[in-house]
Computed example of a mutant assay.
Amino acid sequence: MSERAAPFYCPYCGDEDLRPSEAGHGAWECAACNRAFRLSFLGLLASGLTRGDRDDHDG
């Protein structure tokens, strides 16, 4: 089994100085902005969803 992909950028500041956190699986630390965050997979989108359907909900 292969490892999961690592994030390339911090979701808060956009910096690339990320390290795995000791907080557990999917947890990362950004040395630039001193934030910790966790990544997780939520699931697949419904198969009936189309691009036009998403645009209708943008307000």
Rank of each mutant, 00 (worst) to 15 (best):
Ala23Gln: 15
Ser40Ile: 02
Leu18Gln: 03
Pro7His: 07
Asp17Gly: 04
Ser21Pro: 02
Asp15Leu: 02
Phe37Cys: 13
Arg19Ser: 15
Arg35Thr: 15
Asp17Gln: 08
Ser40Gly: 07
Ala23Trp: 06
Asp56Thr: 08
Ala27Asn: 05
Arg51Ala: 13
Cys33His: 12
Gly43Leu: 11
Ala5Met: 03
Asp53Trp: 00
Tyr12Thr: 11
Arg35Val: 12
Asp53Phe: 03
Ala23Asp: 15
Leu39His: 00
Asp58Pro: 00
Tyr9Cys: 11
Asp15Pro: 01
Asp56Ser: 10
Phe8Trp: 00
Gly48Trp: 00
Pro20Gln: 10
Tyr12His: 14
Trp28Met: 10
Glu3Asn: 07
His25Gly: 12
Asp58His: 04
Arg4Leu: 09
Pro11Asn: 03
Ala27Lys: 02
His57Cys: 11
Ala46Val: 08
Ala31Gln: 11
Leu44His: 08
Asp58Lys: 05
Phe41Pro: 00
His57Gln: 13
Leu45Cys: 13
Asn34Ile: 03
Gly14Ile: 05
Gly59Asp: 15
Asp17Trp: 05
Thr50Phe: 03
Pro11Gly: 06
Trp28Val: 12
Gly14Cys: 09
Ser47Gly: 09
Glu3Thr: 01
His25Met: 10
Leu42Ala: 15
Asn34Pro: 03
Asp55Gly: 04
Asp58Glu: 12
Glu3Met: 07
Thr50Asn: 14
Leu42Met: 11
Glu29Phe: 11
Ala46Gly: 13
Met1Asp: 00
Asp58Ile: 06
Ser40Thr: 07
Gly24Thr: 13
Ala31Glu: 15
Trp28Arg: 04
Arg4Phe: 05
Asp53Val: 11
Cys10Leu: 09
Arg4His: 08
Ala23Met: 08
Ala46Gln: 06
His25Ser: 14
Arg4Trp: 01
Gly59Arg: 08
Ser21Asp: 12
Gly59Lys: 07
Ala27Trp: 07
Pro7Ile: 08
Phe41Val: 13
Leu44Met: 07
Gly43Ser: 11
Cys30Trp: 01
Ala6Arg: 08
Cys33Glu: 13
Phe41Glu: 07
Leu49Pro: 01
Arg38Gly: 15
Glu22Ser: 13
Glu22Lys: 02
Ala27Glu: 05
Arg35Gln: 15
Gly59Thr: 09
Ser2Gln: 04
Ser2His: 02
Trp28Phe: 10
Glu16Ser: 12
Arg54Met: 13
Glu3Cys: 00
Gly14Asp: 06
Arg4Gln: 14
Leu42Asn: 12
Thr50Leu: 06
Ala23His: 11
His25Cys: 09
Phe8Ile: 12
Tyr9Leu: 14
Gly43Val: 08
Glu29Arg: 05
Asp56Gln: 07
Arg54Phe: 03
Ala27Val: 06
Cys33Gln: 14
Leu42Ser: 14
Arg38Asn: 14
Ala27Phe: 05
Gly26Phe: 01
Gly26Lys: 01
Arg54Gly: 00
Asp58Arg: 06
Phe41Ile: 11
Glu22Leu: 09
Asp53Thr: 08
Gly52Ser: 14
Cys30Phe: 04
